[in-house]
Amino acid sequence: MTAGVDLGPKTQAIGSDEDVVRVRQLVRTVAVAVKLSLVDQTKLVTAASELARNTLIYGGGGTAEVTVVEDGRRRGVRIVFADSGPGIVDLGLALTDGYTTGGGLGLGLSGSRRLVDDFDIQTAPGEGTRITITKWSR
């Protein structure tokens, strides 16, 4: 089955809430192809859903780029969420459970960080936000 899946990098634009659904579907397909466990697939797709929604709501839209990565022993899925929005002024606060400026639950950033293995965020006021997450197979 997986032989037919193209594992090259794929980019999904995020400009509407239908695109957030498409990001979830793309990430799920790739996570299944690299044989993440069911729980890890679920965690990664959930994190991707949170971050794609953030890209849309706070970043004013952007892109999600999904790549298969390898470190010799194992494979993983890396996703980069990038937007050219206002950026995050206080990153420490933004990563706190329950903090929100958008009327949500304030779990998007902090919660998705717990769901993945690697989490990196580059942001500055006025310079957009770029979040990279990776989930490795066990």
Binding site: V39, Q41, T42, K43, D97, L107, S112
Partner: peptide
């Protein structure tokens, strides 16, 4: 609710 969903929800903090 699927088990994997329950595990993820708790870790997410919901």
């Amino acid at each position: 609710m699927r088990p994997a969903v329950a595990i993820t929800l708790v870790e997410l903090g919901l």
